[in-house]
Structures are given as C-alpha cells and as structure tokens.
C-alpha cells in the first residue's frame, strides 16, 4: 500500500503570540515550531498500516517555507520512507488554496490512503482535509479514533468521534482521506538510528506556485487582534466552606445572573 500523510509544521502551543503591527498576521521571529500534534497521530497510524501490509510505503507531504524540512525529517526519523516538501514562497494562500496545492501534489503519487490531522492548531481551520478529499474526488472520514483494515486490503472500518462520547462507524473503500483524532494511537519517538537514517532518505522539493494553477484565495484574515483580556475576579472569602459556597451561589445568581 502507498500511504500519504499531510504534515503541517506549527508554532509550539506554549508560544507567546505577538501580532504584527500591520494587524495582518503574527510575528514569526523567535517562534519554536513543532509537528502539528494531530498530524503526529497520522504519521503513527501510517506507520502502523505499513507494518501490517508488507511492501507499503509512507510518503510525507508538507507545504511551507524551508523550515518545514525539519518536520519532514522528524517524520522520516519516526519511520516514514520519503518526503515531499512543497515550498510555498510567493504563494498567496488560504485553506482553499492550501488544499488545492496539496491535492495537486498528492494526485501525482497514486496513493491508496491519505492520512491527515483533524485540524492544524495554528489556524484551527479544520478545512484542508475535506477540501483535499473533494478536489481528489475521494471519500473522507474525519476525526477518526480507530482504524481497522479490511482483510482484502481494499478498504477499512473506521470509527469517527462525534459528540457526547458517541462514535459513528464507517465502511470506506480506498483510496480515501482520513483525519486523525487524539486517542487513535500513541506516536512513537524517533530512535537514534532512525534519526541517522532519516538524513539519507529521499526528500523532493516542489514549488507551490507551480501547482496552484489559476486558482485564487477565497478568504482573507484581516484585523488580527488579541482577545479581550480576562481580568481576575473575586476571590470569595468566608469563615467556612459552607459560607463560601453560599456566597458563590448568591453571586452567580444575583451578580453574574447565569443561573
């Protein structure tokens, strides 16, 4: 089987975000980057499928500036076979354009399965996966927390998480696009030999501007700002726990009026 993974590099969740003075983005200097956590689940799941189906290959796709090579190398060190870096200098992008370029890249590879994260934790868009699936004209199942390959290797049964602990169980044939949720697996760490090996694994570079055609962005983010700061409120005083509880209930009803 040939399995692809869409991997995005994103700012570490601890990053303190500063808004650019033109209000059109964030300051990027000093940011530490990590693999998008949900995409790590996708890499791990791809490796698990590869271990089950002899002769499989795992291909990592990542679009972004030169720095994303680092993220691809990490996935290669975990055990993926090769990487494709879609260099995006000069590309005017939104989710629609990112999905257009990624779909056009994936199309060249004849994959059986494309695994992604359920969302990228920078733009929090949850758009690229379903858009790529539509552009490829493949079925999709989003937010999966279980994947069982069919014995014939032509499809899978997947569990998709919806609200209230409920799961939807889908039958899906290959090729298809699946997006991964926490809980699907525990991503492995790259071993030292893995890291050494990754340095020599193939990594191709394509230019996003060659893959976008005459498509144009559909949305634009403007007026970037910090959310209103939440101010510290009242610490409730009282002689006993009961007195504090009573005062909190009173405040919630009379002051905050939420009950």
């Amino acid at each position: 089987m040939k399995i692809g993974v869409l991997l995005k590099q994103v700012p570490d969740t601890e990053t303190k975000i500063r808004i650019r003075s033109d209000s059109k983005g964030i300051e990027t200097d000093g940011i530490k980057y990590i693999l998008n956590p949900y995409d790590e689940f996708a890499v791990e799941e791809a490796l698990k499928v590869k271990e089950k189906v002899a002769g499989s290959e795992v291909v990592i796709f990542s679009m972004g500036p030169a720095r994303v090579v680092e993220a691809i190398r990490t996935a290669l060190a975990m055990g993926a076979d090769r990487g494709i870096h879609v260099e995006d200098t000069g590309l005017v992008s939104d989710s629609y354009i990112a999905a257009t370029v990624l779909a056009n890249t994936v199309r060249q590879e004849n994959l059986n399965l494309l695994l992604c994260g359920k969302k990228a934790i920078d733009d929090d868009a949850s758009q690229v996966v379903a858009m790529v699936a539509e552009f490829l004209n493949w079925p999709q199942v989003n937010i999966i927390e279980k994947l069982e390959l069919n014995p014939d290797g032509q499809g899978a049964v997947v569990h998709r998480r919806v609200g209230g602990g409920t799961q939807e169980v889908y039958d899906v044939g290959f090729p298809c696009v699946l997006s991964c949720e926490k809980g699907l697996n525990s991503p492995r760490y790259a071993s030292l030999p893995g890291i050494m090996k990754a340095k020599t694994k193939p990594l191709a570079v394509l230019k996003a501007t060659d893959l976008v055609g005459d498509n144009k962005i559909k949305t634009e983010f403007v007026n970037w700002r910090l959310p209103p700061e939440r101010k510290a409120g009242k610490i409730i005083q009282g002689e006993t726990v009961e007195a504090k509880a009573k005062e909190l209930v009173r405040l919630l009803r009379e002051e905050a009026k939420v009950l």
Binding site: D94, A99, D124, A125, Q127, A130, A133, F135, R161, G163
Partner: peptide
C-alpha cells in the same frame, strides 16, 4: 461548528468553489 458542520462545510465549500470561515 459541530462534528457534522466541521465535516460537511469544507466539503461543501470546495464543491461550490467558495470560501469558508470555521468556528
């Protein structure tokens, strides 16, 4: 922006070739 909406809307946007704002 529910499990259904998050799954459906980007597919719909891509099919209509239009933009979407999530959540």
């Amino acid at each position: 922006a529910s499990p259904l909406g998050l799954d459906l809307f980007p597919r719909l946007a891509a099919r209509l070739k239009v933009g979407l704002a999530t959540d």
